[in-house]
Structures are given as C-alpha cells and as structure tokens.
C-alpha cells in the first residue's frame, strides 16, 4: 500500500516537473587544471525544486562540475573556469558578485562530514550571524531550531546543543552539515558524495531528508552509488571523460538509456 502511494507521488512530481523553472544553467563550461582540460564544454539546465544526480566513473568530471556551481574551484590555484554559469539568470562568475553571498545561496555538503570544532549550536549559528540574517538571540535560536528540525536532527540533539558537533555520529554530523547549509537560507544545495562515509541506515535517513528538502530547495548530488542516484533523483546526468554524455529523467536513464556508454556504466560493464 505504501509503495503504491509513493509511486503515485512520483508520477505527480514528474508531471509537475514540466513547469519547473530553470534555477541554474551552464553553457559551454570548461575547467582547466593548469594546461589540462578536465571538463570539455558542459551545457546543462538545473530545474528548480528538482534533485539532479551526477554519476560517472572516477575522474569523469562530475565533482569538478558540481564545484563550478558555487565557485568552489576558485579555491584551487591552478583551476580555471570558462563558459557561463548562471543562477536565476545571473552570471555567478561576474566580477562584481560577492562569492560569500553566492555560497550562501548555493550551499554545499561534502563527502566527509566536516562540522566546525565548536558546539552543535555554534555550527548552525555561525552562518546566519556571518550573513547578518538575524538581529537578536531569539531569532538566532529560532533559526538554529528550525534548521536542525528540517535536517531531521532536532530531536536527537535538542538537549545537548552545547555539546561539540564533532561528538555526534557520522550520520548525525552529516545532517548537522546539512542543517548548517540550510541555516543561511540557500536556494540550491550541492552535495558531493554525502553518504559515502555513512552506514546504510544513516544513508537512508539522508536520502529521506533529500526527498523532503527538494520541496524547498534545488539539489544537485554527486554520487558513486548508482542505486542512490536511482532512488533520490528526478534527473540523472552521466559524465564520462570530462563530457556530459547523457542527461535525462532518472526513470529513463535507469530503464532505457540512449547512449551505450551510459548503459555500460550503469549496468557494471566498465568502471
């Protein structure tokens, strides 16, 4: 009975997708590490309130591309990005743009949970304070609580908000990092292998969370776990050797991919 309800829900989502606006867009995006061209001109639209998964073998460029979406590649000295990346139609590589502000709008969750070596409360409070999103302690408390609630962590930590964030389990730490990203009211959340360091139960909880969050945010997730991409995403993009080979509805990619390289990868014919 439950599974039937879920599948009806998915159908409705798919029908609604047609009306989703373009949230982020990439045109002819190339990334160079020194002289080495790592991404060969990627074109992609990411739609609002949709989960898009990037899959592909190691070194295919999926993480590199994800990092273009909030200018994380800026932090690598040898990296150079060309082409156009837009958020709500605005060029995010524009010189006048505030990168700190961009990274609040386009948040990121990393492979390894990386809470600050501070209390659980401070982990969440840091961003809103930095961005001046709150005026007083009461507002701050509210943001911390609502962020932890949205990340499904509140009930587990509400009695120990002053305990160090690093003392939580791996899965809890990852949800803390998601809560931290949410606290600054992002529009897009980028996730780079968010579950690869987690056990299956913690992974399921994060996947469930992704499903809930997509109502409010646009989510792009890099994953090595193809079943995870199949479970959580609406769209799947397959990268290979620095190219975007195929981008389609997840239901199509996993049942009837159009490119033989996609098929070979998702069926375990090369890795």
């Amino acid at each position: 009975m439950n599974t039937m309800q879920v599948s009806f829900g998915e159908k409705k989502d798919n029908a609604a997708q047609a009306e989703h606006a373009v949230k982020m867009s990439a045109r002819d995006v190339k990334v160079f590490y020194g002289d080495n061209e790592a991404l060969h001109g990627i074109n992609m639209d990411i739609l609002e309130n949709e989960v898009i998964a990037f899959i592909g073998p190691s070194g295919c460029g999926k993480s590199t591309f994800l990092r273009c979406l909030n200018r994380m590649n800026d932090t690598i000295d040898t990296a150079r990005v060309t082409g156009l990346v837009t958020l709500d139609g605005k060029d995010i590589y524009d010189r006048s743009l505030d990168v700190v502000q961009l990274r609040a709008q386009v948040g990121m969750v990393f492979q390894k949970p990386n809470p600050f070596p501070k209390s659980i409360f401070e982990n969440i409070a840091y961003g809103p304070r930095l961005h001046g999103l709150v005026d007083n302690k009461r507002d701050l408390d509210e943001v911390v609580e609502s962020s932890l609630r949205r990340a499904g962590l509140w009930d587990e930590v509400k009695d120990r908000l002053e305990a160090p964030g690093t003392g939580l389990s791996g899965g809890q730490q990852q949800r803390l990092c998601i809560a931290r990203a949410i606290a600054v009211s992002p529009e897009v959340i980028l996730m780079d292998e968010p579950c690869s360091a987690l056990d299956p139960i913690a992974t399921s909880i994060i996947e469930e969370l992704i499903d809930e969050l997509k109502g409010s945010y646009t989510i792009a997730i890099v994953t090595h776990n193809m079943q995870q991409a199949a479970r959580v995403s609406d769209k799947t993009a397959f990268f290979h050797l620095g190219n975007l080979v195929e981008l389609n509805d997840t239901r199509e990619i996993f049942t009837n991919p159009q490119d033989s390289r996609t098929e070979d990868y998702i069926t375990g014919r090369f890795g």
């Binding site: 199949a230 996993f254 049942t255 009837n256 996609t262 098929e263 998702i266 069926t267």
Partner: peptide
C-alpha cells in the same frame, strides 16, 4: 544485483 537498463529489461 539490482540490474539496470538492458539488464533490468
């Protein structure tokens, strides 16, 4: 095996 694509079909 959680087959996909052609294997699943």
């Amino acid at each position: 095996r959680q087959p996909a694509a052609g294997d699943l079909r």
